[in-house]
Amino acid sequence: MNQSVGVASIQEEPTNKSPVVAKSQLIVKQLIILCLEMLLALPLGWTLTKFHIGGISWIFGGIAAGTAILQGCRIFYNYAPKPNRIARKVGMGLVGLTVGASNANSDLASLASRIPIFIFLTLFLLLCGSGIGYIYSRLSKTNILTAMLATVPGGVGVMSSIAADYDRNVTLVALVQAIRVTSVVLLIPFIARTSVNDYWNLPTLPLRGALIDFDPAQLTLLAIALLLTGIIIFLAIILNIPAGDFFGALILGATFNFWLNSLPFVNDVHFHAPLLVNIIGQILLGITIGEYWGEKPNFGTKTVGYALMSVVMTLVAGAIAAILAMQLTSWDWLTCLLVTAPGGSAEMILVSLALNHNVEIVTAGHLVRLIAINSSLPLWLFLFRRLDRRWGVENRQ
């Protein structure tokens, strides 16, 4: 068969192939698309750093690349791939590793007395999300479970997966969640400018040669850390643990040096995650958000309008939670905003890391939120389904 190997090879051909062959071809297509997205995201992210967008420029580059490549596949090759959830899990794991390593010397235990405040803020956001979901359901004539999954701040991938498990409108849930996460990721850096005077002058990429440390010892430690991170991601996928990739990798990064130095044959080892790992993690996070934008939902103007309305209400709820946090703590308003922002936990921690602004507080707050949301998911799903049956499905999607 004289067929060139290239982008055109990702176009689907209707053939009667065995499940193993079909699965293998699907994996190859996903890898090709991911490589194209990475190749596009790198120059885009680099360009954004030149405009001093801030320390999470690579996420924005990934969002643009994911959107462009998926749109290109659909328009030019009549192929509509689904968002790559495994790529997001890998990105979460890499970001978790770098954030954990950067917090290795932080005294997170000193924040234990603040756990009740973190839990209170999480419950406040969950209750607000439920109320917003109910309003959204009534106005948009969407069933209550779909509306709740779309508006509760639980992450694009997790909530979309749950919607698929319960045969709800995955695309609608992904749309609302993606709008919310993208809005927060875009707004927070601009808001931060009013608090951090030199924000736009913060270095987003160190000098050449600092992307990775080629010292043999550091390369060996990096290989071990990446291997353990891969195992954590694999277990999170197999066991279907929500946010287990990010949480597990973060714990690994924070305790990696401690466990190494506790070995009898190791002395005074200090591992630091290279910037390249952080950049790749950011790009993967951005790509998966962009892929949800790259899908072609058949939504009308009214549906998108209701989605935007629910996102605005969620952002207002996050701002109110930040005001409550300021009243309950001595933290400055930017720290409170980063702790309560209804965006992705990894993305918000990355913003605080880029600003070098109370990273341990923001990390602790979002870890408590992740644990609280994921541990209470069965209860919330039970309540949402009961409400769904009680009020009936007005417009099942």
Rank of each mutant, 00 (worst) to 15 (best):
L36R: 03
I241L: 09
I289C: 11
L187E: 00
P342E: 15
F190W: 08
L235F: 13
N201S: 13
N298C: 06
A174F: 12
S57Q: 10
Y136I: 04
T122I: 13
L36W: 02
L36E: 15
Q30G: 15
F76K: 15
H366M: 10
R88S: 04
F271G: 11
G129H: 05
S102V: 14
I279E: 09
F384M: 09
V269M: 08
F60D: 00
L315W: 12
I287N: 04
Y134C: 12
K141V: 12
G55H: 07
L175M: 14
M313H: 06
K296C: 02
R138D: 00
T98L: 09
V7C: 10
T301F: 12
A354P: 08
K82Y: 09
A364H: 00
L370C: 15
F51L: 09
F247N: 02
I279A: 02
W46K: 14
I349N: 01
G290I: 08
V312T: 14
S110C: 04
W333H: 03
T303S: 06
T98I: 11
A41I: 05
N2V: 05
S106P: 01
H270Q: 13
T329K: 06
L48D: 04
L108Q: 04
R369A: 08
N84V: 13
S345E: 02
G100I: 09
G62K: 01
W46I: 12
A109K: 11
I212A: 09
N197L: 14
P83F: 12
I231S: 03
G100F: 13
Q218W: 03
M1H: 13
R180Y: 00
A236M: 11
M92P: 05
N240V: 14
T340W: 13
A249N: 06
R193C: 10
A163R: 01
S376A: 12
E394M: 14
T98G: 10
N278G: 05
M148L: 15
G133W: 00
L123W: 11
L205C: 08
N257Q: 07
A254P: 08
N16E: 15
F60E: 04
P274I: 08
G55Q: 09
L285I: 12
D198H: 06
R390M: 08
P203L: 14
L260D: 03
I10W: 05
M38E: 03
I119A: 13
G365P: 07
N201L: 12
G96N: 14
N267Y: 11
S262Q: 15
V95S: 04
S195F: 07
L370T: 07
L207W: 09
V158F: 09
A364L: 02
I135W: 08
P189S: 01
A68H: 00
L387I: 07
S110E: 07
G61M: 03
K141W: 05
A325G: 15
I63Y: 05
V196T: 12
L324I: 12
R369V: 08
N201H: 05
D213E: 15
E291S: 00
G286A: 06
Q3A: 05
R208S: 07
W46Q: 06
L328R: 05
N358K: 02
I119R: 10
